[in-house]
Design a binder for these strands. Structure first.
Length: 240
DNA sequence: TTTGCCGGGCG
DNA sequence: CGCCCGGCAAA
C-alpha cells in the first residue's frame, strides 16, 4: 500500500500529463527544519522562509513515459484519518506536497470519493502518508530538464497565497537556479510542491468536472481566485 | 439550483 | 488595457 502510493506518485511524475503542471522546488531558510515542523508552525509565526522557486512547464522534454500500471489509479490509503495538519501555504486543496521524508495529500481525497464532497475548511487539511522516497526521488529526477543551464521559464502563474504565506513568499524573482543541484542532493531539505495532481492521483470524476477557482476556493475566498475567474472569464489556473 | 464564461459595458 | 456583470448553457 505504501509502495503503491510511491508507485502512483512516480508514475505521475513521469507521465506526460504532468507537463501542464508546474513544479515548485522550495527550500527553507533554516535548513534544519523539516516539513513537519513547518507544517506544525502556527500561522502567525515568522518562519522567515528564504525561498526560491522554479517552474517547469511544457518545455520539459518528453519523457519516455513508462507504462502506467493500469490499476495504479485506484488504491486505498489505509488509516483514513492519519495526522491531520493545516496547510501553511494553502495553495489549493488539490495540491500534493512532497518533502524529503513524507508526502502530504489533502484530506479531501482521503474520504470516500463520491458523495459528501468538499466542505470548505476541511479541504485545507493535509495528511501525511508514508512513501518510499527512493522511488519517489527517481520519479522526480525524470522531471529535471536535460539541459542544466536552461534557465527556468517564468512561472505560469503565481500560486494563490493566503495572507500569511504571502508575506513569506520571498525570493520569487530569485536568480538562483540551483534546480539541478537541489535535485542532485537527494531532496534533502528540499520541498517539492506539485500542483493539480488530483486528476492523476485519483480516478477522474465520472463527469468531466474540472475544479475551477470558484469551486476550489469557494465564494468566501474570492480573493484567492485567479484574475480570469474573478472577472468571470475562462479560468487560466485550472485548465482542462 | 449552481457553475463556467461569453459577450459586452464602463472607466 | 483593467475591471465588472447580465445572461445563458450545462451540470
Amino acid at each position: 500500500k505504501e509502495v503503491m502510493a510511491a508507485t502512483v506518485l512516480t508514475s505521475l511524475s513521469t507521465s506526460p500529463l504532468i507537463l501542464n503542471s508546474a513544479v515548485y522546488f522550495v527550500h527553507p531558510e533554516p535548513a534544519s527544519k523539516t516539513w513537519k515542523e513547518v507544517l506544525s508552525t502556527s500561522y502567525s509565526s515568522s518562519t522567515s522562509g528564504n525561498w526560491s522557486w522554479d517552474a517547469s512547464d511544457q518545455s520539459v522534454p518528453s519523457t519516455p513515459s513508462p507504462p502506467l500500471s493500469k490499476d495504479s489509479t485506484h488504491f486505498m490509503f489505509e488509516d483514513p484519518i492519519p495526522r491531520k495538519r493545516k496547510s501553511l501555504f494553502l495553495f489549493s486543496p488539490y495540491d500534493v506536497y512532497i518533502s524529503c521524508n513524507a508526502v502530504f495529500i489533502p484530506t479531501a481525497f482521503l474520504r470516500n470519493s463520491d458523495s459528501d464532497y468538499s466542505d470548505g475548511e476541511e479541504d485545507f487539511y493535509y495528511s501525511e502518508i508514508e512513501v518510499n522516497m527512493d522511488s519517489l526521488t527517481e520519479g522526480l529526477s525524470s522531471l529535471t530538464p536535460t539541459s542544466p543551464t536552461t534557465a527556468g521559464p517564468p512561472p505560469i502563474f503565481p500560486p494563490p497565497l493566503s495572507d500569511v504565506s504571502r508575506s513569506e513568499y520571498v525570493g520569487v524573482n530569485g536568480s538562483q537556479s540551483h534546480t539541478s543541484s537541489l535535485l542532485s542532493q537527494s531532496l534533502d531539505d528540499v520541498f517539492v510542491h506539485v500542483l493539480t495532481l488530483s486528476h492523476l492521483l485519483f480516478p477522474r470524476k465520472p463527469r468531466g468536472e474540472a475544479k475551477k477557482c470558484r469551486k476550489v476556493y469557494g465564494m468566501e475566498k474570492r480573493d484567492m481566485w485567479c484574475t480570469a475567474c474573478r472577472w468571470k472569464k475562462a479560468c487560466q489556473r485550472f485548465t482542462d
